[in-house]
Design a protein around this nucleic acid. Structure first.
Lengths: 331, 331
DNA sequence: TTGAAAGCGCTAACAA
DNA sequence: TTGTTAGCGCTTTCAA
């Protein structure tokens, strides 16, 4: 069962290759009769066009490369999934790469995606100084990350989100509020930490931040958070910059017999489906993943049509109340 | 900045196209001098081979298609991520598709992947009666799903896992144990339910199962689980066939003032990283995702080398103790 | 050790 | 409305 070629279909149908090609691509003038004949023949032979050869001639691959830190992380899994669904409808297939925190892997990936002639790139990784982006000459959209002056960035409002988290804790009566964040040069960089600190100071409160390595292991985080409780046993509010840290803090707090939300209030960040389902009690700032994906697709379409784009799109976040926050007095 | 071709490199270096090709592929006899010359030229010109053209001639794309229900689901996100990491090291890029519960989408995806000449396929979807698999003529590995008589299946031991869950509950003193599962023709089909029922009967207990639609919405699940508690307020053990259901049951039970694990013990299924991090209290049966990915890769390598394969690989699951199970008396 | 030339399966002028 | 033909950028005989 050797692979069928367009030529085989042409022969079987008694027409030329060009005609078959026209039928496949619905291009040019065609008689109903020929269309039917060719389509029937293709079906009978179970012919499927070789996309590689099509790509060879058209120069378009209908392939989009998506680079994320890791689809195992629900945030990026949900993002990649939403992007993929949109792109599939638009006729694109998606090559996903998990760059991890590995700049070398990201570089290699990028090269390979370019070799594969992807039509566009969506980049949601956190590595820095990847020079391949500098002279890449194709549509690129960056998610929550600056890549190059002319590459648009889609992000949710990290500053406003952290401010909202901090203010909510203050509003609900927390007076000693600690923040945990990833070491910078990662993810959202320092926006969230800065917003937390500014908000605290605006309320004449002292900011206290504990940093952990986003790519470090769990033991390291457990140690840091235990240190937090040891050093600040009177903490009554915690703003964690991601939900998994918040869940861990919640667990440790319960083990240490803090009553939530009476003794201690906790608010996380991200608000993925996974955290909603697996940790429904956790209050959190919800990043609008679906909207971020939509905005990415919109910009990509514009860019593919060579239209001008905004330099960045910043989308609003929302608060999800769990049971780790006290009830809002004003309601 | 028109795309550079191999021919441009050849001209610039003053050699033939064949020579440049040989250098790129390290094939045939080459003098050190030519190698250096050509490599220098490629670097200077910042040339990168067009993978599409390479694919055109070699017939190999170095592309692997992976079809999952949804990478937004942590189980499949983690699986896809692990697979991708392995495959990248082996020189493959990965085309991932989210087939959802949509058989039509799965069919179309499959066709497109075949059109794109993927070298192999890894299928972890749950849709049925997709005829494209019947005459697909390339290496395929199925994960937790039967596709065709000669396509090997990788899975974890669903029967043993459900048995372990049920027996653990019994061992820890639960006497009225309810099971929640997805409607069949999904995922693991009926293995888990069957094991639960058989185990219950073996202990002279009455099996009670509540089924929900895996792709249904949250409200539907909440309703079903509330019904469960209404109809069986004296339930003291629940085995849920996935962790998100278990987390929801846990939440509802707490709202209804069950004390865990004293009044009620709960055990979930899957044990993803995400559930470990976001719901650390939840006891669960852990599927060995990494090992499943490893086994998949091993079989794929064998198949790519045309070697014979086992019909299936069944990997053992383990119990993760959270705090929703009573302590094991025997320890 | 290197080069010339054919061909991979398709599309797109151009002709008819 | 359909056919002929020249590539697309690469690899691979075959010859030198």
């Amino acid at each position: 069962m050797a692979k069928l070629r367009l030529e085989d279909v042409a022969e079987a149908a008694g027409v030329s290759k060009a005609t078959v090609s026209r039928v496949i691509n619905r291009r040019g003038y065609l008689s109903k009769k020929t269309i039917n004949l060719v389509e029937r023949t293709m079906k009978e032979l179970n012919y499927r066009p070789n996309a590689i050869a099509q790509q060879m001639t058209t120069g378009k691959t209908q392939l989009i490369g998506i680079l994320v830190p890791n689809v195992a992380n629900p945030f990026f899994g949900e993002l990649a999934s939403t992007l993929e669904n949109h792109l599939f409808k638009m006729g694109y297939k998606v090559l996903v790469g998990n760059a991890q925190n590995d700049a070398a892997k990201e570089s290699r990936y990028l090269q390979q995606l370019l070799n594969h002639q992807v039509d566009a790139l969506i980049i949601a990784t956190h590595n820095h100084n990847i020079e391949e982006y500098q002279n890449a000459n194709l549509p690129i959209i960056a998610i929550d990350r600056y890549l190059r002056q002319d590459i648009p960035v889609i992000q949710s409002d990290n500053y406003a989100g952290a401010k909202l988290a901090t203010e909510t804790l203050i509003e609900r009566g927390a007076t000693k509020i600690v923040h945990t964040d990833n070491l910078p040069s990662n993810q959202h960089d320092t926006q969230r930490k800065e917003a937390y600190e500014a908000t605290m100071r605006a309320h004449r409160l002292t900011p206290i931040t504990y940093l952990t390595d986003f790519y470090g292991d769990q033991a390291q985080r457990v140690a840091t958070f235990n240190q937090l409780f040891d050093e600040h046993p009177d903490v009554n509010g915690i703003f964690a910059s991601n939900d998994t840290d918040a869940a861990l803090l919640l667990q440790i707090a319960r083990q240490r017999n803090y009553r939530l939300p009476d003794d201690l209030q906790i608010i996380g960040y991200d608000g993925t489906q996974a955290s909603q389902l697996l940790a429904p009690d956790l209050a959190t700032i919800v990043q609008p993943i679906a909207k971020m994906a939509n905005a990415t697709i919109d910009l990509l379409e514009l860019q593919l049509k060579k239209q001008t784009l905004p330099a960045s799109v910043i989308l609003p976040v929302t608060l999800r109340e769990g049971t780790t926050l006290r009830k809002n007095k004003r309601r």
